[in-house]
Simulated assay, not measured.
Amino acid sequence: MNSSDGGTDVGHDRPRSGPRATYPTEQSSTSRRRWFVGLSVLVVVAGVALAWLGYTKFASPDVSGEATAYQILDDSTVSVQFTVTRADPQTPVSCVVRGRSRDGDETGRREILIPAGDQTQTGVRTEVATSKPPVIGEVFGCTTHVPAYLTASTP
C-alpha cells in the first residue's frame, strides 16, 4: 500500500492521506470515562456554587426595614415612618432612611440607630433634611453592623 490509498509510510503510524487519514481513530473507553467523570464533577461543583449563591442572596435576612408612611413637611424635610423586623430583638440595628426629589435623585439621607428591644418588629419615625423639595421618603436598608459613630445618644 502507498500513502495515496490510505496506507502508511514506513516509520509512520498514521496515514497521511486517504479515508483513514480523514477520520480519527476511535478513542479508548478509558479516555471517554475520564471526560465523563471530569464533566460530572464540573457540573456538581457548578450546582453547589449556584445553590450557595442563591441561598446567600435570597435567604431571609437578619434584619429588614420597610417604609409604612411618609409625609412631606416642607420644601426641605420629609418625615418617614417605617417598621424594622429583626430575627434577634436583642441586637441593635441601624437603618438608612432617605428622601428623594421629583427627578429621582437622593437629596437627603439619615442613619438611625434602633436599640435592642423586646419585640421582633419595631415602629420608627424620623425626619430627613433634603437639599431639594422631596417627593418621597423611603428606607434604603438596615443592617446589624452598627457603625461605631452611631450611638444611643445620636438624635
Rank of each mutant, 00 (worst) to 15 (best):
Ser3Lys: 10
Val78Glu: 00
Leu53Thr: 07
Asp118Glu: 15
Ile72Val: 15
Ala129Phe: 05
Ala49Asp: 11
Pro133Ala: 04
Ala87Pro: 00
Arg20Leu: 14
Val135Asp: 01
Trp35Leu: 13
Ser76Ala: 10
Ser29Val: 11
Leu53Glu: 07
Thr151Ala: 00
Gly99Asn: 05
Ala87Cys: 00
Glu26Cys: 09
Gly18Pro: 06
Asp9Arg: 11
Arg109His: 05
Arg98Asp: 12
Arg33Glu: 14
Thr22Asp: 12
Ser3His: 03
Ala69Gln: 09
Gly47Phe: 07
Ser29Cys: 10
Arg100Gly: 03
Val84His: 10
Ala69Lys: 07
Val139Asp: 12
Thr143Met: 10
Val146Lys: 00
Lys57Gln: 11
Ser40Thr: 13
Val80Cys: 03
Thr122Met: 01
Asp5Asn: 15
Gln90Glu: 08
Gly38Pro: 14
Val48Tyr: 09
Pro155Ser: 11
Val45Ala: 14
Thr22Asn: 06
Gln90Val: 06
Thr30Pro: 01
His12Asn: 10
Gln121Thr: 07
Gly18Arg: 07
Thr120Val: 07
Ala51Leu: 15
Ile136Phe: 04
Thr22Lys: 09
Arg100Tyr: 04
Pro15Val: 06
Arg86Met: 02
Gly11Arg: 03
Tyr70Cys: 06
Thr107Gly: 05
Thr107Arg: 06
Pro155Ala: 11
Arg16Asn: 05
Thr77Glu: 04
Val45Tyr: 10
His12Gln: 09
Leu113Ala: 05
Val124Ile: 14
Val44Thr: 15
Gln81Tyr: 01
Val43Gln: 13
Lys57Phe: 03
Phe82Cys: 07
Gly65Glu: 10
Val96Phe: 04
Trp52Asn: 11
Ile72Asn: 02
Glu111Tyr: 03
Arg16Cys: 00
Ser28Gln: 13
Ala46Thr: 14
Thr56Tyr: 04
Arg33Thr: 15
Thr144Phe: 08
Pro155Phe: 06
Thr83Asp: 15
Thr22Pro: 01
Thr122Cys: 01
Thr68Ile: 13
Thr143Asn: 05
Ala116Cys: 07
Val10Pro: 01
Thr122Phe: 06
Val44Tyr: 08
Ser64Glu: 12
Gly99Gln: 04
Thr8Met: 13
Pro19Ile: 02
Arg33Phe: 15
Arg98Tyr: 09
Ile112Glu: 13
Glu106Arg: 06
Val44Pro: 02
Gly141Gln: 02
Phe58Gly: 00
Ala21Arg: 08
Arg125Trp: 09
Ser76Val: 06
Ser3Pro: 00
Arg100Met: 10
Asp13Arg: 09
Thr144Val: 10
Tyr55Ile: 09
Asp105Pro: 00
Gln27Asn: 10
Ser29Thr: 12
Ser4Trp: 03
Leu50His: 06
Arg125Thr: 15
Ser17Lys: 10
Pro61Trp: 08
Val139Gln: 10
Ala69Leu: 01
Tyr23Leu: 15
Tyr70Val: 01
Leu113Tyr: 03
Ser76Asp: 12
Arg33Asn: 14
Gly6Glu: 07
Val41Cys: 14
Ser40Met: 12
Ala67Val: 09
